[in-house]
Amino acid sequence: MNAINRNGHDHARDDTAQLPVRARARNLYAYASPNPGNGPAQTPPILPVLARSPRERALRRCLRRLLWAVPVTAGLWLVLTGGGPDSLAFGIPAIALAGALAFATTPATRWRIAPVAAFRFAGWFALQSVLGATDVARRAFRLHLALAPGFCRFPTRLPQGAPRIFFANAISLLPGTLSAEIEGASVIVHSLDLRRNTHAELAALEWRVAALFALAPGTQDSVSHTGGAP
């Protein structure tokens, strides 16, 4: 229970000038989520003469997702099965189903992945998952189980959808933590050892996920933003 942070939102109202740059960046990305209303700015229309309705834009997003999902799932199937005629009897319905699922589950907003942050995240995450596996293996082989398992709640500022789900899934591979449930804006985390400082580790992961989805403004950016902020 020590990991419950109830005053997380109060920081935003504080005088941000007193916070370190990193913390200021964390405060800002909560408001920097991509706005669906800014769609035309991100994807300039091919025919700028015709203004697109939001509904038309949503449909186009679905179609784009479908066009992307079908070749990818077909490629996966071919690599895994070798593409024999027998396998295609199962493969073609499976690919069609995957396409339908992609069409049905198109998220309301589009997310951008920052390439440099993605590489940095991948390296860090690989190391952390090795540490996590070694930690749990060591605990399993020990004669006396050194466990103090329990739950804690971590309120996250990551926006709903892909970033929050990605965050929850990444928690499960970090040393000692496992995401049990997403409840609104909080992730219920199961910890193998509540004596560890779980909250600080989760906050670090949250910051990295925000950087991965290009939600945290760069250091320079955050300084100029906070300079102008009330």
């Binding site: 930690d135 749990v136 466990l147 040393p175 496992l178 049990a180 199961h190 193998l192």
Partner: peptide, 9 residues
Amino acid sequence: HSRLHALTK
């Protein structure tokens, strides 16, 4: 939940 830790990681 502790068992899931062992399995996933």
